[in-house]
């Protein structure tokens, strides 16, 4: 008698677990993966979206642009976040795997060049920043600063920011082998705050203190000039970035496999729509311009 009861309980609970797992499997989870520059922003966008649509769970992971694109090609995520365009190699690999990437611009990032607050240097030209990171300028006094050897901070090679900076600022030349390869934006910020002779580059969202909304204590965001004769602009100057005057700005992307539909389409529309763009601005990134909106529309067809 007792045994039968026990058996019944076991069977019923098995049935419940089984039914439960089935209903979870029916709900499709949207997997987003990629750029560390985007991971916080997309996480917040996803939370806002899920508040309105509690039936669509969204999981957001970092790992770097290369990791996200590789995951999209391998079919292990639905949306890839990336802060650089696809490489030729990746497009070919996608074709081999029958993946047809569609690209959407969801925000604009100013890569900010940061130094320690105690550094007297306030602005640099693109050429100077490039030469510093190539290892050709080794001391701060060569650019009008104190007599200290420059301590370089950058990202690891799986980062979209690493590739973007190499292409746009270093002129597709090698980084100095002395550059410290840090794990993420936050680590660069911490390193620069502690190191008086430092220079680093991070996504513009990372220079703010999350509580006060001001630039982090101990950090100075450099103004960058296109060349030695033109005026320098700060990435914190929104008007200048919108007008395209800040030289180190870049669009941030999401890619899907083929034309998105259903919940994925809805989520992308939310991100690029007015609500999403409000969040983008609040998180310290720049909203997308009209040329980006046209490009997004084209990719939705």
């Amino acid at each position: 008698m007792n045994f039968k009861k026990l058996l019944l309980v076991v069977l019923v609970s098995f049935g419940l677990v089984f039914a439960g797992s089935c209903s979870i499997a029916k709900q499709k989870m949207i997997q987003v993966k990629g750029s560390d520059t985007l991971v916080n922003l997309v996480q917040i966008l996803a939370e806002a979206y899920m508040e309105k649509n509690p039936k669509t769970p969204i999981a957001v992971l970092g790992g770097g642009s290369g990791t996200g694109i590789a995951a999209l090609i391998n079919g292990t995520c639905d949306i890839a976040d990336h802060s650089r365009p696809w490489k030729e190699k990746e497009i070919n690999l996608a074709k081999e795997n029958d993946v047809e990437p569609r690209r959407f611009i969801i925000a604009v990032d100013g890569v900010s060049v940061i130094v320690n607050e105690s550094n007297s240097v306030g602005d640099l030209s693109m050429d100077q920043v490039g030469a510093i990171y190539r290892g050709q300028i080794k001391n701060w006094k060569e650019v009008g600063g104190p007599d200290k050897p420059i301590s370089l901070y950058g990202r690891q090679s799986n980062s979209g920011t690493y590739v973007f900076f190499q292409e746009h600022v270093l002129g597709k030349k090698n980084y100095s082998p002395d550059m410290k390869r840090m794990n993420g934006n936050a680590q660069i910020v911490e390193g620069v705050i502690q190191d008086k002779a430092s220079i680093g580059y991070v996504g513009v969202g990372y220079v703010y203190d999350t509580k006060s909304g001001e630039v982090r204590k101990g950090l100075k965001v450099l103004k960058i000039a296109n060349d030695a004769n033109s005026p320098a602009y700060s990435p914190l100057d929104k008007a200048a970035v919108d007008a395209g005057k800040y030289p180190v700005a870049r669009p941030l992307f999401q890619s899907t496999n083929g034309k998105p539909n259903g919940a994925i389409l809805d989520f992308i529309k939310f991100e690029t729509g007015p609500e999403g763009q409000n969040i983008v601005e609040r998180e310290g990134f720049f909203t997308i311009g009209s040329s980006h909106i046209t490009e997004n529309k084209k990719n939705l067809k």
Binding site: G63, T67, A70, K89, L93, S157, N158, R181
Partner: peptide, 17 residues
């Protein structure tokens, strides 16, 4: 600053094609 063999594998294996 230095980079060890183990660190190099850990950094690059996740991203390498």
């Amino acid at each position: 600053s230095i980079r060890t063999m183990t660190a190099n594998i850990a950094i690059e294996l996740g991203e390498v094609p």
